[in-house]
Each structure stands twice: as structure tokens, then as C-alpha cells.
């Protein structure tokens, strides 16, 4: 068994175990921490498969940004009402979850089939790597939307400061 196979089994086992705890855990903080663990393990799986860009984005966006947002919401809402102990939701969530799973499985397998078209075919990708290919497009052709996105972030930051400021502080204007 080579190192790649070992790491695949380790990552996938941990991912499945922590995903099970996300579903069945009772303490909401522990489930969120377990969700982070699942996401990091999945990004590890991406790395073992050589998709280094998706793995890095997984850590950056999901594990850092989105889960931190969840923790923030849970800690700011007093007496969080999200009790997961009620069994009647199972009736709805299991079939819906299964349908979503089927759809995702279909889309992923179909996507693998179709992904070898476009200017970055497999030969180019093996030369360049994913990160370089995306970076090339982002900083050449799509530079302008990329720059304007920074303006959107600036505006959102200004807005958060204005709307989130305490009333008393406004007096000095």
C-alpha cells in the first residue's frame, strides 16, 4: 500500500465519521466543529487526487469563511432554538437528502465525462496545473470583473461599518 492509498483511506474514514457526528450530534458547537473537520478531510481528499486548487479553495472558503460565519451566528443568537432532537423531521429529510444525493452523483459523473473540452484540455492541464490555469484566466481576460469585485467588497465594508455603528457614536458628525 503506497502513501497515497493510505492517506486516501485515512481522510475518507475521518470524513465519514465526522459527517456522521454532524448529523447525530446533540451539542451544536461540537457539530459545527465536526463539520469543519469533515470539510478539511474532504479537501485532503482533493489534494490526494491532485486537484490542489479545489482543495485549497475548499479550506479557504468552506472551512474558514462559511463555518466561521456559522459559529458567529450561533454565538450571537441567544438561546439558539435549533434543537435537532425532533424525530419527525427525519421523515422529510431522508427522502429529500437521498434525491439530492442522486442528483449530485449524476452531475459529478456526467461532469467528469464532459470536462475534457475547452481550451484547457487534459494535456495543457497536466503541463500547467489547475491553479495556474485558473489564475491565467482570472488575471488576463477576467481582470476587470476581478478588480470591480474589490470595489464591491469595499462598499460592503463601508456599509457594515455605517449600519453597525452604535447610535451614540453618531453624535459627533
Amino acid at each position: 500500500m503506497d502513501l497515497n492509498a493510505i492517506s486516501f483511506w485515512v481522510f475518507s474514514t475521518l470524513a465519514v465519521l465526522s459527517a456522521i457526528y454532524v448529523v447525530f450530534g446533540k451539542n451544536i458547537i461540537y457539530t459545527v466543529l465536526s463539520l469543519i473537520s469533515t470539510l478539511i478531510m474532504v479537501s485532503g481528499l482533493f489534494f490526494t487526487m491532485g486537484a490542489e486548487l479545489v482543495g485549497a479553495l475548499q479550506i479557504l472558503i468552506y472551512a474558514v469563511a462559511i463555518v466561521v460565519f456559522y459559529v458567529l451566528v450561533i454565538s450571537t443568537v441567544p438561546q439558539f432554538k435549533g434543537q435537532a432532537t425532533d424525530g419527525k423531521y427525519m421523515l422529510l429529510s431522508i427522502p429529500v437528502g437521498f434525491i439530492v444525493f442522486l442528483e449530485l452523483a449524476y452531475v459529478s459523473i456526467y461532469g467528469v465525462w464532459q470536462s475534457s473540452t475547452g481550451i484547457f484540455d487534459e494535456k495543457v492541464l497536466s503541463e500547467l496545473g489547475n491553479a495556474k490555469a485558473v489564475g491565467t484566466m482570472l488575471f488576463t481576460k477576467y481582470l476587470f470583473p476581478f478588480e470591480v469585485a474589490s470595489l464591491i467588497l469595499l462598499v460592503a465594508m463601508i456599509g457594515a461599518i455605517i449600519l453597525g455603528r452604535k447610535k451614540e457614536d453618531v453624535q459627533g458628525v
Binding site: P145, V148, I152, V155, A156, G159, I162, L163
Partner: peptide, 12 residues
């Protein structure tokens, strides 16, 4: 991206 710059600014 233009639509978003407009919309987010107007929410604020």
C-alpha cells in the same frame, strides 16, 4: 458584477 455593485450599494 455591475449588477452586484449597484445592488449591494443600494441595500446600504
Amino acid at each position: 458584477i455591475g449588477l452586484e455593485l449597484m445592488s449591494i450599494t443600494i441595500y446600504i
